[in-house]
Design a protein around this nucleic acid. Structure first.
Lengths: 242, 242
DNA sequence: TAGCTTAATGTCATTTTGACAGAAAGGGGG
DNA sequence: CCCCCTTTCTGTCAAAATGACATTAAGCTA
């Protein structure tokens, strides 16, 4: 199908970042307010164009994270979520966007960057229910990101990425509840999590108390894959999160 | 970071297809022999450039499938696997490739297409072990495809996509064994598969026999998600497949 | 009809699950 | 210091699921 005169079309490539965290027991996503056209003033995922033809896509994702949200979390693990390239999704032309997913523990508020008039952690349910409108097809990307996160919680130790260095089992449970949008029994959760080999391991016998009995502290174990998996309950709350 | 003089770099976009099937109880992948440079003569995944700036990526994937392998399986469900865009992965310049995954029942041999000197179903273990060398970073893409398929077998009804319209439970088990690279107990498999609601449903009381007792026939059910999931055994054979 | 092959059903001890009860370990108010 | 409240942790227990294995059923063939 390649003729002499034919040459493949050139397209522009952007990266978009879906970064989730937990705040006040609610799932939140990092959004910026666009400072440039198109969609100026609208909320969108942080991201932007490839810098130059030799830049790796993953590197571009890290760079945009730094530029747009001033979050230079080197240990932040970015995982490719998907590529969105429907014609017409961007009024500037044929733009294909590679989306990345990352999970962060509770972090200080990000500051606005170069292209972003503002940046902040927005409620995921607000986004999912259309109370927070997003530019481009970013709602779809966030939706896919949620589903990916929910699924990965079952089979991987992703939940520990929401937590700080050390955490209690109750904190870990809050992660599952917020992302899955369900309530779990603390006693059964306690038992189940403990028996997955390598998921979490005790971190000193230190403790941290506010009101009730002090809780033991744990840290992420060495295992990335959960055997057996923590299967989410059949009926998932369509609300998505709290 | 956008200056007046700056404009985003233009890149070329290709699609690549990872299509698995089962032949002689072995997992196979569709490969073509490249008829054009670079890597002329080497084995590679079917795929190619976007046709024109307005073509949707998924459409391009279907088109390439038709062009390169003459497989116009409209019911073939293509699922995005990932995007591979490391600089230097393609000697022709900055090329970013969007890979799709598909599962097919046993099909007639594909015929060579326009850019492909030959096309055929190659043994996946041969590819994984380097006995079959692949062009570009296609080994990596196939590896990711395997892992995706293995994982999806646990939580989705993907296994039925390997089978024809109707199938026996033993045939379904062969799918799991070939993809996971393990042996399963037929009796426990029988029981487990039957109790997942909506996974498979009886298809007439017809039967199809060769040697032993005739087996009941089933067809794919209405459920795409498996509750509960069929978890693969802890120790997965590193051989990958038979 | 005997013998072979594969399908389907059954058995059973061991784990796992889900839903609870209760004990342990702090803090605060009197 | 002593109750009360909160939260964490440890048990209990019946129902269900799991893994390993035996047995029966249903065809074909020699």
């Amino acid at each position: 199908m390649i003729e002499e005169s034919w040459s493949p079309p050139e397209v522009l490539v952007t990266v978009d970042l879906v970064i989730f965290t937990l705040r006040e027991q609610e799932l939140r996503v990092l959004l910026v307010e666009r400072g440039v056209d198109p969609y100026r003033g609208a909320r969108a995922l942080p991201g932007g164009f490839l810098n130059h033809a030799g830049e790796d896509i993953l590197d571009a994702a890290h760079r945009e994270l730094r530029e747009e949200a001033d979050l230079d979390v080197a240990r932040l693990h970015l995982e490719q979520l998907g590529t969105y390239g429907a014609p017409g999704r961007d009024p500037r032309g044929r733009v294909i966007s590679v989306a990345y997913l990352a999970i962060a523990p509770e972090l200080p508020d990000p500051v606005a960057g170069t292209d972003a008039a503002d940046a902040g952690w927005e409620s995921v349910p607000d986004v999912l229910f259309g109370r927070t409108k997003l530019a481009f097809d970013h709602l779809r990307i966030v939706t896919d990101g949620i589903e990916r996160a929910r699924s990965k919680l079952e089979h991987s130790a992703l939940a520990t990425a929401f937590c700080r260095e050390t955490f209690t089992i109750a904190e870990l449970q809050q992660v599952y509840e917020a992302v899955w949008g369900v309530r779990l029994d603390p006693r059964n959760f306690y038992r189940k999590v403990q028996k997955v080999p390598g998921f979490i391991e005790p971190a000193g016998q230190e403790r941290r108390a506010t009101k009730g009995r002090p809780a033991r502290l744990f840290k992420a174990g060495s295992t990335a894959v959960l055997h057996p998996p923590l299967v989410r309950p059949e009926s998932i709350d369509s609300e998505g999160a709290r």
